[in-house]
């Protein structure tokens, strides 16, 4: 868990203080294109002579901002959806449950690509569209887990006791049920950030995500793929950044899971 936290700390630090760590990621220098890593350019330069280290560091800011926004939005929406479905049961649960099933049956990336494609045709590519498109598929895992947890929590006697003092359903949901399911949701969110980073990079790699010249790990990968043989570092370093960051969130999430004593089956 500490190792995970350390990695996350380094990435967050890089993202937040990018101005102080790195040079200008946009500065094109055609006389210095495709340089291999050196003391001056730690990660070398790309096909336009931009400093790759700076682009990867600024990329951390883009990826983290998007990933955290997407995770928070899908956590709030998915948890509410699952909580209402599980708590009220009956027809509401039938309808909401089927909606969850439908979303689970469509591969996330395919739906993401389709959504980004359609939306960017009408509105042009923007970070908002990427946030919306990934959150659109990502909330489902929260809904599923929260629904299951609420189903078991609502049978506890303290829920009946709360009803006995005259509390309304909404109040019980807010004060008694949600505090009891917050553990698994936090663990899921931490593990989920890693997946979301991969989703963002996938879209970027396919050219559908953040558009150049904004530095984003997937976008750098995409731009480097034509130079894989002559300048492999263009793909190597952002790829490494993605892998390490995702690993960090996963290690931290699993540590949290053990600390918060959440059953493994619930999350997986």
């Amino acid at each position: 868990m500490n190792k995970g936290l350390f990695i996350i700390g380094v990435v967050v630090f890089a993202g937040v203080f990018a101005e102080f760590i790195a040079k200008d990621p946009y500065r094109v220098d055609m006389s210095n294109r495709l340089l291999s890593p050196s003391l001056e350019h730690f990660f070398g330069t790309d096909q336009l002579g931009r400093d790759l280290f700076s682009r990867v560091v600024y990329g951390a800011r883009t990826s983290l901002f998007l990933a955290v926004s997407i995770t928070i939005i899908s956590m709030i929406f998915g948890s509410l959806f699952g909580a209402v479905s599980g708590y009220f049961g009956g027809i509401i649960d039938d309808v909401f449950g089927r909606i969850i099933d439908i979303f689970l049956s469509i591969p996330d990336l395919v739906l993401n690509i389709a959504l980004v494609g359609i939306l960017s045709l009408s509105y042009g590519t923007s970070p908002l569209i990427i946030i919306f498109s990934i959150a659109f598929t990502n909330w489902v895992s929260y809904a599923r887990i929260v629904r299951g947890s609420v189903l078991s929590i609502k049978e506890h006697e303290f829920v009946l006791a709360a009803k006995a003092i005259g509390a309304s359903n909404l109040y019980i949901l807010r004060k008694h049920i949600i505090p009891n399911i917050i553990g698994p949701v936090i663990v899921l969110a931490t593990l989920n950030v890693g997946n979301v980073i991969i989703a963002i990079s996938s879209l970027g790699f396919l050219g559908l995500g953040i558009q150049p010249p904004t530095p984003e790990w997937g976008e750098i990968l995409n731009s480097g793929k034509n130079y894989l043989e002559t300048a492999p570092w263009i793909m190597l370093f952002p790829g490494f950044a993605i892998a390490v960051t995702v690993l960090g969130f996963n290690i931290f999430g699993e540590g949290l899971r053990d600390v918060l004593d959440v059953k493994k089956e619930i999350i997986e």
């Binding site: 006697e157 303290f158 009946l160 006791a161 009803k163 006995a164 005259g166 309304s168 505090p179 009891n180």
Partner: peptide, 25 residues
């Protein structure tokens, strides 16, 4: 209307105090 009666006019003490208290509050 019943919610206004519960707790205020008529109160109930359920069985099993250990289960009737919320562990996280």
């Amino acid at each position: 209307e019943m919610r206004e009666i519960r707790g205020k006019e008529i109160a109930i003490m359920l069985q099993n105090p250990s289960l009737s208290l919320n562990p996280v509050l």
